[in-house]
Amino acid sequence: MILDLHTHSVRSDDGRAKVDNYCQWIRKKELPLDGFVLTEHRQYDDTSDYRDLEDQYGLLILKASEVETDYGHVLVFGVNEELTHAFDFARVDNHIGDVLAAARRCGAVAAPCHPGRPNVGLFAHFERKGPIDGVDLVEIYNGGSRPGEDEMSEAEADRFGYRGFGGSDSHIVSRIGYAATEFDDPIRSIDDLVSALQAGRCRARTFR
């Protein structure tokens, strides 16, 4: 089962993709995706209901968040009410230690995305400030990476012993599926996704 774990819709300030257009694009282009996760910037969307689209297109549509920290951007999967009160999703200067600890405490998974990117990637901050504890999973393939960034992500993840996943980071429809994550077991819900990421029963794939 393959899911794109990093996508943005029009709910993100720089997102220009409608969710139903993602669905029809995946089917029309026969992309090897079984679903995708919406990771809107600096927010958790607890209102949108995509069950009708899931039924219509036979796709799994899950919701997560991309938050901003002093060590770059971090995807948070398994957001629940307790976690939304644990730190301010809208801030751009959250402490990564707080985000990682809160996610662990609330049964969620927090994983730095595009870690090989300047300024908003984890490893750029490691170079300047030294490594931190609490990270075990990072996005090694990102569909928006520039040449060399994914290579750095993969090499550094390997060096630090981090597991990897992939996501397109699509902001427009036609970029969904550039990178994704393949799972060993069926994923039917956000709880299944969190369990699979925690257990490491998945691997990053790139389709660029």
Binding site: D13, H41, E68, V92, R117, V120
Partner: peptide
């Protein structure tokens, strides 16, 4: 609004 990007912290 504010966000962070490749160029640092930015005000939009």
């Amino acid at each position: 609004y504010a966000k962070t990007g490749r160029s640092g912290t930015m005000l939009f």
